[in-house]
């Protein structure tokens, strides 16, 4: 009865009330940013006195924002490709391998995800000071790869563990070499997990801010770093415009993920 919605009595109304309030709590701030990005008030009045596109105009007129956007995009795309490929190999090794210490390696692969990012950020910053990778494209890629890899490995390992290895055996018996069987049968079969790994890896890099704050140089700033340093000075509505674009970006990725999931053969 505690799990039957129609027989919860007054509890039902209490649950509904909390659910609605939490839903609004989660949703309204996001809608608010989007609304404010079109509002004319420099001081972010709500409701806005008038509607305008001038903040977007300012944003696109500022080459620094555009540069940061493309820096972030380049880093995130590179990380996405590398993380997916390395994660794919590692996942095959983890699920199929029989080497000693395999569980330890698996644990190590997931650790960057559970440790406080600030520790990794400071540690990498120190290392990169020594080998002069701070403020470089390669430095960003390496750092974000460390953060992204666990997500890729989890996503692909999950898919690989659900994949029946007998199918790959069948491909080999059919005459495909072990590598050919993986490329033509196994990887296409677990493509949802691979796409998931790619999306998560992209987002892990795209949204990463803590490490980037340490590593950024005036010449090479990712979008989150620029937002962060701007926010430390003032709450310009331009940020609302950037944020709205990011929200739109997220919504597109979510739709893509939902679409992929629907495409999945049952």
């Amino acid at each position: 009865m505690l799990l039957d919605f129609d027989r919860l009595g007054w509890l039902r109304y209490a649950l509904c009330l909390v659910a609605v309030l939490v839903g609004l709590f989660l949703l309204l701030p996001i809608l608010l940013i989007v609304a404010l990005s079109f509002g004319s008030s420099q001081w972010l009045q709500f409701p806005p006195p008038a509607w305008t596109l001038k903040w977007y105009g300012q944003l696109f007129a500022d080459p620094e924002w555009l540069t940061s956007f493309f820096v972030s995009l380049r880093i995130a795309l590179t990380v996405m490709v590398l993380s997916t490929v390395i994660g794919l190999m590692a996942s095959f090794g983890l699920t199929r391998g029989r080497f000693p210490g395999r569980e330890l390696v698996r644990a190590l692969f997931l650790t960057p995800m559970v440790l406080p990012v600030v520790v990794l950020a400071v540690a990498l910053y120190a290392l990169f000071l020594r080998i002069q990778l701070n403020g470089t494209f390669i430095g960003f890629v390496i750092a974000h790869l460390v953060v992204a890899l666990p997500f890729a490995i989890i996503s692909i390992c999950n898919a690989l563990e659900r994949f029946d290895i007998a199918i790959e055996d069948a491909a080999i018996i059919c005459g495909a070499s072990p590598l050919e069987a993986k490329l033509r049968v196994t990887i296409p079969s677990i493509r949802l997990g691979v796409f998931g790994a790619a999306i998560f890896s992209f987002l892990a890099s795209w949204d990463e801010v803590v490490i980037a704050i340490f590593m950024a140089s005036p010449d090479l700033q990712t979008l989150p770093v620029r937002i962060f340093s701007t926010l430390r000075q003032d709450l310009s509505p331009v940020i609302a415009a950037v944020s709205s674009i990011l929200v739109g970006f997220t919504a597109v990725l979510m739709l893509l993920a939902a679409f992929l999931r629907k495409d999945k053969p049952s």
């Binding site: 989660l26 949703l27 701030p29 996001i30 608010l32 940013i33 987002l203 949204d207 801010v209 989150p224 937002i227 962060f228 926010l231 709450l235 940020i239 609302a240 950037v242 944020s243 709205s244 990011l246 929200v247 997220t250 919504a251 990725l253 979510m254």
Partner: peptide
């Protein structure tokens, strides 16, 4: 949606 939205965007909203 909330979870996937950029962390800075969400923090900005609360600021």
């Amino acid at each position: 949606l909330s979870m996937w939205t950029n962390l800075l965007a969400r923090t900005y909203a609360w600021m």
